[in-house]
């Protein structure tokens, strides 16, 4: 696999040169492989948001470099928009950025900015709408008439319509009910698989990260604490809990059970896998 997004000694300092100088991220070296699904976790203020806004060139590094497909994105600052189309960023509560009078027009905002032809824009809008399961009739409604969950899906479609190689989502499920949450995450997974896209998902839910991500990026105090596979990261549960983060609930239960001598793997990260293991244990016991 090849690297799609890379940072080199990336540092960002807010209010540089004033008394309120504060490093938001420090010396971040990252290598994100193509097609990876990365869960980004960390405390509020750990630098997650600052980091992701560097990956598509919204923030300019104080020092260090950001590369996309091997290209230094700040080599020609005038052409920075090109990279914003390659790396789509969905902010927290993206529904507050909707502005057009129809859903269709709003989703087409990104593709239109890319300077695509009308047919291509139409194709992209319909494809993006299909990804987030919007009905044809909804496309011609005003985005302000929709429900909260629908608005959010429209906003996500607005970014997906640019068909970015890398899709970054900052807490896309915040404030949604469990059903809305599963739906949106399912749609993101779908995009990931069908488009062979790289996805970065910022989340506070370790369950979601364990379920969808292949790798986990842990940020702590402006630095990258860990960037590894889900198994490797959650196996260091003690350190993660010391940071004030958690591991998935089911992992904690399985660890306790394993500690009590139940033959279950302490490296269980999803409820499904726990269920299977417990059922097989019960079957074993039933045989005896």
């Amino acid at each position: 696999m090849s690297t799609i997004s890379r940072t080199e000694q990336l540092t960002h300092i807010y209010g540089a040169g004033t008394a309120f100088e504060q490093a938001a991220i420090r010396n971040v070296n990252l290598n994100i492989e193509k097609g990876e699904f990365v869960g980004v976790i960390g405390h509020t203020g750990s630098g997650k948001s600052t980091l992701i806004q560097h990956l598509n060139g919204l923030l300019r590094p104080t020092s260090g470099k950001v590369y996309i497909n091997g290209e230094d994105i700040w080599a020609k600052p005038k052409e920075i928009r090109k990279f914003r189309f390659q790396v789509g960023l969905v902010f927290q509560y993206p529904e507050y950025q909707l502005f057009e009078d129809t859903v269709y027009k709003d989703i087409s905002f990104g593709p239109r900015n890319m300077g695509l032809s009308e047919e291509e824009i139409d194709r992209r809008v319909r494809q993006a709408a299909a990804f987030v399961e919007l009905k044809e009739a909804t496309l011609y409604k005003s985005p302000f008439e929709l429900s909260g969950g629908q608005k959010r899906r429209v906003a996500i479609a607005g970014v997906i319509a640019m068909s970015p190689d890398v899709l970054i989502l900052d807490e896309p499920t915040a404030g949604l009910d469990p059903r809305g949450r599963d739906r949106i995450l399912g749609e993101i997974k779908e995009y990931h698989q069908q488009q062979k896209a790289t996805v970065l998902l910022v989340s506070h839910s370790m369950e979601d990260v364990a379920r969808y991500a292949s790798k986990v990026l842990v940020m702590n105090r402006s630095e990258v604490f860990l960037y590894d596979t889900v198994e490797a990261v959650f196996s260091r549960a003690e350190e993660i809990e010391k940071m004030g983060l958690t591991v998935p609930q089911i992992t904690r239960i399985c660890r306790r059970l394993a500690a009590q001598g139940v033959p279950i793997s302490p490296h269980t990260y999803t409820v499904e896998s726990a269920k299977e293991q417990i059922l097989s244990i019960l079957r074993e016991r039933g045989k005896r």
């Binding site: 806004q53 598509n56 919204l58 928009r81 914003r84 189309f85 789509g88 960023l89 969905v90 902010f91 993206p94 507050y96 950025q97 909707l98 502005f99 905002f109 990104g110 900015n113 890319m114 607005g158 970014v159 640019m162």
Partner: peptide, 30 residues
């Protein structure tokens, strides 16, 4: 909102006066 629209490729920095005013709509409406 500015960051969000810039992430969708909104161009706030170039163009003539009329274009620039138009470019503000995606920010002012939300």
């Amino acid at each position: 909102i500015m960051s969000a629209q810039k992430a969708r490729g909104a161009d706030l920095e170039s163009g003539g006066l009329f274009q620039r005013i138009r470019a503000l709509l995606p920010i002012l409406i939300p």
